[in-house]
Design a protein around this nucleic acid. Sequence first.
DNA 1: GAACAAAATGTGCTCGAACACATAATTAAA
DNA 2: TTTAATTATGTGTTCGAGCACATTTTGTTC
Lengths: 346, 346
Amino acid sequence: MNKKYTIKDIAQLAGVSKGTVDRVLHKRGKVSQKALDSINAVLSEIDYEPNLIARNLKNNKIYTICVVLPDPAYDSYWLPCIKGIEEAIKEFKAFNLTIETHYFDPESSKTFLDVNEIVVDRAPDAVLLAPLFYKEALGIVEKYIKKEILVNTFNNQVESNEIRNFVGQDLHRSGRVAAKLMASISQKGQIAIIHIAEKFKNAIHMQEKEKGFRSYFVEKEDSIYEIISLKLKRTNYEAKLTDFLTENPKLSGVFITTSKAYQIVEIINEAVNDKISIIGYDLLEKNITLLNNGKIDFLINQNPKQQIYLGISFLVDHFIFGKELRNTTFLPIDIVNSENASYYME
Amino acid sequence: MNKKYTIKDIAQLAGVSKGTVDRVLHKRGKVSQKALDSINAVLSEIDYEPNLIARNLKNNKIYTICVVLPDPAYDSYWLPCIKGIEEAIKEFKAFNLTIETHYFDPESSKTFLDVNEIVVDRAPDAVLLAPLFYKEALGIVEKYIKKEILVNTFNNQVESNEIRNFVGQDLHRSGRVAAKLMASISQKGQIAIIHIAEKFKNAIHMQEKEKGFRSYFVEKEDSIYEIISLKLKRTNYEAKLTDFLTENPKLSGVFITTSKAYQIVEIINEAVNDKISIIGYDLLEKNITLLNNGKIDFLINQNPKQQIYLGISFLVDHFIFGKELRNTTFLPIDIVNSENASYYME
DNA sequence: GAACAAAATGTGCTCGAACACATAATTAAA
DNA sequence: TTTAATTATGTGTTCGAGCACATTTTGTTC
């Protein structure tokens, strides 16, 4: 990969002008067989790679990317995304690029639709979307596509051929990771899967995690574990949880499928005397505190910051450097304990 | 960050020519106070960011980067590095860049010196070095600096003001992560730290890991653990290990500070009847097999591939886009079990 | 105020790809 | 063979930063 050839070099070697080489490279036709042959002969011998820097200099279009995600004020799971966006802006500010952030309320599908309506009207070149509401997302993707706006997603997977790119985690696998961890630290007994959500049916991600978690133990064919699940809503979850704990006094482990572990860990600790293993999700400040004082054993990092940063950089690579968009990028399922947490928080 | 201003724009706004703006931006002097003021006034109002693409078009120098690392044929820990280099070459092939790989024998400081001598003579723009031999590395760094060759390191940290950049892991912290894991899965008893190396005194990285591991238990002030360490050499390590195991029959956990866990796990399993917790390093094929069939509990990923890839991309960002080199980049200390391993192996 | 030096400022070219447009070569029709 | 139509090929300009060089302005001295 030593000498870098230019179009001019190829033209010279093939004995034609750079215009003709350009037509061959871009298959614009209007080239004689003779010229085509001699240029192809040169191309097959050298390793021509167009200079991306020169190619993009000419392209003085300013690309606009809109990022649509839940307002971190409602759910601090999304807080790291702000940093991710800021980093991306800083990293790419020297290119012709505008990045806009648009928030919606994660518990209101109406605000989701509204904000996307606004973004459609802004007519950006691409949207990076956290499609929390499955059905609504499908509809809104249609609208984007009709206006020829590129749609990529992160965090939540939505099955659609129109979506070019997804960055997130394999949730089924993520449940399996939790299960394996649980088996490592809790030798036997009852294990509870606890979901905390308003509408469980809409929360496909929790269902996937539960399936993954259970699949691990099914494959293990180990009768020393008994898996039970519990769904909690925001209203009156304390009472329901306390009841559950008195009904199941032999609990040895709890797997919480959302980032809300901090809401219930203290309640569990007060109600149960024995050591109980707790595995949750995400490095929220409150979870980290519980991790550090030993009340949570492991957290699984879904890495929202990296998700959004990568989502943006794929778009930049696509627009600025003409790179292809790969279809799905599954981020690693990071296992976090008190000692390595800092590296995933920055 | 909407409109992108160019030098021409600034010149127009300040009522001067682009040459004068250029002189101000680069502090080349020869500018009147009046012109300076008006240009500064414009600069303070707008957010000028030079177009990196245009800046680098002119710079038609071909940068050469030499990567110096142990030959993976001797130690397959380094195998992923090949992939990392290949990915970097692919990613950056459109820029004016040549990446050369040079191997040495990880057990021979002579080959280390020899290959670096060759690289010095090749006079690249930068070297990315795995400085396995501390003392020798310091000497060779001097030589590079004298020839104005930029030196960055990865994997092993060497204290030197001449080294601009290091990518690797905080080994002390990495030992602590292992300790915390050990405490999670092994409730009590004797725990062994096992080093496998020819020259322990030279192997600072193992010492750091041991210190970190012990520091965790010291802070915990938990008398239910007893930590003992053992050094093994390649010759006759089986006998020495077997002796050690008979002398310490109550062993409940083993922490292996190198990627060589696969060499001793089977021996341990044959000699010990009780469940013994094993934590090792790095995703070598043989380690992964043992992880998958439950004979290793956790592996800590040092991510050599990512280390080398990042090391190269920092250099590219520096040369091609004029980015500053940050001093030290500590990669996350990834905890790996059978369920999430695939994400760290690609 | 002329003559000259020094400082300040402006102009024009380069990098490589892309594409519009001008010109040359070839073929078809008269 | 001439003319027009078609096809093939070459030329020139653009993008933004950077820098060499030309030109203008200012300052100094006799």
